[in-house]
Amino acid sequence: MIATRPADTADALEGGFTEAPIQSARAFREILEAMARPGTIRRVQGARPPEPLSVAAGVALLVLTDPTTRLHLAGRADCAEVRDWVAFHIGAPLTRAEEADFAVGTWEALHPVSRFRIGQPDYPDRSATLIVEVDRLVNHGPALTGPGIETATWLNLPETAAFRANRALFPLGFDTLFTAGDRIAGLPRSTRVEAI
């Protein structure tokens, strides 16, 4: 899908995949491993989105969003440069948090996360995926257990209460991708989180 070129935004033409079928395939595989093995930190490449988006957030948007998904830009991510880049490379309609299929921004900007769609009891898949920009990703911090984790692992989550509340809604709930630079980690709703 090619959106019409926005005026005065030559930069918006840059920073997409140059070889979309291959780059999106490799990136999806990393995202799949990240979501299927919560807490594992993977690397992705190929996108050069405008500030303040990280490479990994840009890659996740290019791989997963398109004109059929509603996207919420939160906080500083909701700027002209990002809007133009999304319009040109992705074509996702922008929307408010409550209606979003995908949302991107810092944890503070996404708050309160209870706004996001958690799916319906008969269609739990109709829920939001949050792309949370963080400064860094390390396997240190709250303990994660659940599907995709052999025994336990650890990840520097921005907080635990919101994810515990989200887990309590299972099988409803939102799903989360954390992004920092070119690193990405997943935290599906199924993961149990404990502060340690």
């Binding site: 799949l32 299927a36 898949d125 599907p147 299972f170 799903d175 599906p188």
Partner: peptide, 9 residues
């Protein structure tokens, strides 16, 4: 990815 998030659904 949604299938992964809700195993068995």
């Amino acid at each position: 990815l949604k299938g992964i998030a809700v195993p068995g659904y």
